[in-house]
């Protein structure tokens, strides 16, 4: 006969309850939950769409002004200057700092904090392989970053579809949505890989964050410096820096590579922002294979670094 008093202490795992999720999914879900519950993440996502917001405000005014006859000519002139796909380029490229901030917010501590707390001992002593761990952590940063980059773009895209079809929104490039949908994950994957790779090298999230921010700004500074030195050395006039060898230097930094990638994927060299006529030359898109190769190579190196660094126990030789 069964005892009338239940033993409420430890018991074996009862059968059933359904199969568990794979380790990488468990870890990724943890990353998503923590990212989406951060208010800073959503604030930065809105801030990341600042270019679209301002552009939409301008477009709205021009639309309103268009009703009066004498301004309609001005309005058509303005819309004539707007290259729709370039607006996505600007919206993306003007928010590089925001994307960096989000990557740091989500990814700097991803592995570094685990290193400090010896959490790898917990993860890897469970049926969770190194590849599960790394992929899970990577996805945990990658997906929220995609959301942050993609959400403003898609909102702007939807608005344009609803309002500016007759202004040639679709004629400009029928494949635009597809291009945007390739750009966002590639850029997110680039940031995610680097920040995860750097995070794995440190024991403190703050240090890892500082290291990535340092890499970002120093690479940006040197690429500008080399561009100027090159222009001086070859006595190239400023108006011609947009093409030829000089442009290569422009893309030799974290944000430069991403801008280059965006230009390649959107198939554009760019036009002045906000449709305002400007004299500064637009820098021509880089060689597609160079840009893609550079992005993939840097990301791969970063992921490889993380792969080598992740181990359950430090082995003292």
């Amino acid at each position: 006969m069964a005892s009338p008093v239940a033993d409420l202490s430890y018991r074996d795992v009862e059968a059933g309850g359904g199969p568990g999720s794979p380790g990488w999914l468990v870890l990724a879900r943890m990353g998503w939950r923590s990212a989406f519950s951060k208010r800073a993440f959503w604030v930065l996502t809105v801030v990341g769409g600042w270019y679209y917001l301002i552009l939409l405000a301008i477009l709205y005014f021009i639309e309103q002004a268009n009703l009066a006859d004498e301004t309609s000519r001005l309005a058509s002139e303005f819309f004539g200057r707007i290259v729709w796909r370039d607006q996505f380029l600007h919206g993306f490229a003007f928010s590089h700092l925001v994307w960096l901030s989000i990557a740091l917010l989500l990814g700097a501590g991803a592995i570094a904090n685990d290193n400090r707390a010896n959490a790898l001992l917990v993860y890897l002593s469970k049926p969770c392989r190194k590849v599960d761990y790394l992929f899970g952590k990577w996805l945990g940063v990658f997906v929220p970053l995609c959301v942050a980059m993609g959400l403003p773009m898609l909102v702007f895209f939807a608005y344009c579809v609803l309002n500016f079809r007759e202004r040639g929104f679709f004629d400009d490039d029928p494949l635009l949505l597809g291009r945007v949908l390739v750009l966002v994950p590639m850029a997110a994957a680039f940031h995610t890989s680097i920040v995860i790779g750097i995070s794995s090298l440190f024991n403190q999230g703050r240090l890892a964050g500082a290291a990535y921010a340092g890499l970002y700004f120093i690479s940006g500074f040197f690429s500008q410096l080399m561009l100027i030195i090159f222009l001086r050395a070859t006595a190239t006039p400023l108006e011609q820096m947009g093409s030829g060898q000089a442009q290569t230097f422009f893309y030799l930094s974290v944000d430069g590579l991403l801008t280059g990638l965006a230009k390649v994927l959107l198939a554009t060299d760019g036009t002045p922002p906000f449709g305002i006529p400007a004299r500064t030359p637009q820098i021509a898109a880089p060689d597609p294979w160079m840009a893609l190769g550079g992005v993939v190579l840097v990301a791969a190196v970063a992921v490889f670094v993380a792969w080598r660094r992740i181990r359950a126990v430090e082995v003292v030789k």
Partner: peptide, 17 residues
């Protein structure tokens, strides 16, 4: 093996946050 085994390490360890 890891599914069938529970491991309590010597070091202080936990999952942060």
């Amino acid at each position: 093996i890891r599914r069938a085994v529970g491991y309590m390490p010597e070091q202080d360890c936990h999952i942060p946050g």
